[in-house]
Amino acid sequence: MKVMVKSKEELLQQLSDSVFEMDDENVADVAKEYIAAGYEALDGVLKGLVDGMNRAGQMYEEEEYFVTDLLVCSDAMYNGLDVLREHLPQEKAAGAVNYKCVIGVVEGDTHDIGKNLVRIMLETAGFEMYDLGRDVPLQSFVQKAKDVDAQLICLSTLMTTTMPGMKEVVDILVKEGIRDKVKVMIGGGPLSQAYCNQINADGYAVNATGAVTLAKQLVGMA
């Protein structure tokens, strides 16, 4: 019996829908079907999975989707990515800029849902993410940024007791003479634009989708 091969567009739509509709269980099968049909993995990521995640982000922006929805959408995206990743081209196109971002929850704090959402959305937006996790020693942010030549550091905290750590990261960058090379973005429950100004960070975002807009703006990403 001859099996009908679905069109590329149809499968891309299915990949996108699987993410958008939080179908984290079937998305891997769709991704396998897509690869088996011989379609380009990179398109599967960008026009399929990432497209779905962007649609989810849009719904989050419109307060139709909430944190839980974004988490399950991202589970679906990563499940699909696990299948497509090994088929991606190894070489980057010549002249392509890699936007690199170091992210983490500052020392003393272990609340990381907000940080995880921002990492997911920035990854979706095309940033190369270096996630240092939670309760991260302040010096590690700067060290990692130097090691990978990152343009952006994202600092998160939910606790007021750990807020001063953000200022310390900014101060370390100044002390090491690389403040002009790295932008610093902050986010988290108790923070505000006023605090951002006070510690001389480059930007504050109120939620994960706001963080994407701000990050692109700060690094000059089109």
Binding site: M22, V67, T68, D69, L71, V72, D75, I113, N116
Partner: peptide
């Protein structure tokens, strides 16, 4: 963990 809790409200 809160993330697991949130996911499980759905799953």
């Amino acid at each position: 963990p809160t993330e697991n809790l949130l996911r499980a409200t759905r799953k």
